[in-house]
Design a protein around this nucleic acid. Structure first.
Lengths: 321, 321
DNA sequence: CACCGAGCCGAAAATATCTTTCATACGTGA
DNA sequence: TCACGTATGAAAGATATTTTCGGCTCGGTG
């Protein structure tokens, strides 16, 4: 077997020196383009990997884009009680080359909000909320999650993942816990259009199966935290065996991505006691998975069309009247 | 055991009317032109009072706000074959303190134009849609489904179901196929807050287990079509054994409801070849299930709170960087 | 036809803003 | 408690923006 190693995964125990990328504009962990309006979502997504000071900056930016857009680096640093360096660092983390570009994006966002008039019912669900409120809040929240996910999804990565999956000899999907259900959902649908797909929730079996993979196969890991060992391990094995690997995660900087050829980022909605993170992450993951599926169905249309029709027929038969 | 019979068949279902307002990032397709035209108009208005060089700059800015927003003073000066000073002068004339602010406004303008571009999301997903459109359409569609579901959900029925579940000795959930995953999702969450819940995908085992149920227990059937025999059968058994029965279905007039004490209606979005019904029904079912869960968590807060906190902690531990 | 003045224009200096570097302080785990 | 790694801000360094200033063109005038 070939021991593949992903070279771009930065600073692994190294000197931590300057990150001047090779070949010029490299920069950063994974920033194909800057983000348009997905900024609020991105802030939430990346918040966990931020330091305290950076979080303060990110929060200020997310809360008042318009106001921050009017500020210079120094101004924003003072406002948040931090230094210019921290502001720049935050901008970088959010995917921009520097503060200047973040500021530009901020101005755009402000303009959009201005014209879009965001309703923003940002209240948490309380213990004594009447049931009707619960329904409204949950629905709103999931809608928000969907919008954020769609805005933050990297279509280039998605396209690459779709291509790989459409041409794959075999597709393995790893996920445990709530993500396991998403993995099964994806698998069910892929099977339905005639592809060979398996979902693995058992870490041991997953690894055992991952060994079978080779170039041309696709392995997909689904984990919100990005650091679920039970899911990373099989992905690593698949990666090292030459399979094309995809990570669907809410932490694009987490350990999983170390072994992922393509990274699909799910959005993280703020969570609260009565609204566990699993809820919105699931919604987000499902959207990503749906996109992946539809993309694959498009690419394999010749095969998928009759298969879809057939399963549709088969189902109708079970419906008694 | 008593052979229960439901006296009024076909009652229940909610209004089912389509929801109107949705929050989300919908953004008006083409509202009144707010600010974008403002700048273009200003350019035209002030053009006569501009010198030749300034006109060149103004023209460039009006024609391609987005492109110009990406340029520095020097860049724009070169592009228009003028000097930095001229660019700044133009910016001043247009009413900004300097180029920096013009650039910010330009970025905002670009973003507005961008968002105003409705990508024709009212259309079905086609085989040759670019991947970005697929994402947008799917997200939009699922948002719509959520809005519809929330609007059509009967909160009285939901409240009744919540009460029953919160007080239940044991909760059984039936679902096959895609609905099976929803059943599992609900079960996972209920288990997490200390309730006793089981999901059954195997019809035979489901029936076998349903026999165990009695008054005070709750049985929940999840079926989009409302006529999935494999799910109706266990619900019937549970119903006849005295359990409180709940149906989560897209057809409030379908056969399942015959044995359901409480009916929770999911919405049905239009489907197409590349967008199977399973997709939107799943979204809808999950929202209902989430509402049910949160409702139950509220009612059993004393018990649920520590459980939720505990699982939160357990998860947080895996988040270490 | 030559001269003159007014205002346009751009090169370069001056300033503001952004970015990088580096030493220090803090928190964390042994 | 100590040692290590990391986060953080002050200040130096690099860019971008603004201002200054002198050349230039153009239109009018003797």
């Amino acid at each position: 077997m070939t021991q593949r190693v992903k070279e771009s995964f930065g600073s692994g125990g190294g000197s931590g020196s300057a990150g001047a990328g090779s070949g010029g504009a490299g920069s950063g962990p994974s920033g194909p383009p800057p983000a348009p309006a997905a900024l609020a979502a991105k802030v939430r997504t990346l918040a966990p990997s931020m330091t305290r000071s950076m979080q303060r900056v990110a929060e200020a930016v997310a809360n008042d884009p318009a106001g921050c857009a009017a500020l210079t680096v120094t101004g924003l640093a003072e406002l948040t009680g931090t230094s210019e360096a921290t502001v720049v660092r935050t901008a970088r983390l959010l995917g921009y080359p520097g503060y200047r570009d973040l500021r530009l994006a901020l101005a755009g966002l402000a303009a959009q909000q201005q014209s879009g008039r965001a309703p923003a019912i940002t209240t948490d669900i309380a213990v004594d909320d009447p049931i009707a409120d619960v329904v409204a809040k949950l629905a709103y929240d999931e809608q928000q999650t969907l919008a954020d996910t769609a805005a933050g999804l990297d279509t280039v990565q998605l396209g690459a993942a779709v291509s790989a999956a459409a041409a794959a000899r075999r597709i393995d999907v790893y996920g445990v816990g709530a993500s396991g259900l998403v993995a099964q959902d994806l698998t069910q649908k892929l099977l339905r259009i005639g592809l060979i797909a398996h979902a693995h929730s058992d870490p041991h079996l997953a690894v055992t199966n991952a060994v079978q993979l080779r170039a041309g196969d696709v392995a997909i890991a689904i984990t919100h935290s990005g650091s679920t060992g039970d899911v990373i391990e099989p992905l690593r094995v698949a990666f090292e065996h030459g399979a094309t690997t995809v990570a669907i995660t809410g932490r694009p900087d987490g350990p999983v991505t170390q072994y992922a050829d393509h990274i699909l980022t799910t959005s993280t909605a703020r969570e609260s006691e009565l609204r566990p993170a699993a809820m919105s992450s699931r919604t987000s993951q499902l959207l990503v998975v749906d996109c992946l599926f539809v993309g694959v169905a498009q690419r394999t249309y010749e095969m998928a069309a009759p298969a879809l029709a057939a399963s549709y027929e088969a189902l109708a038969h079970r419906h008694r009247r």
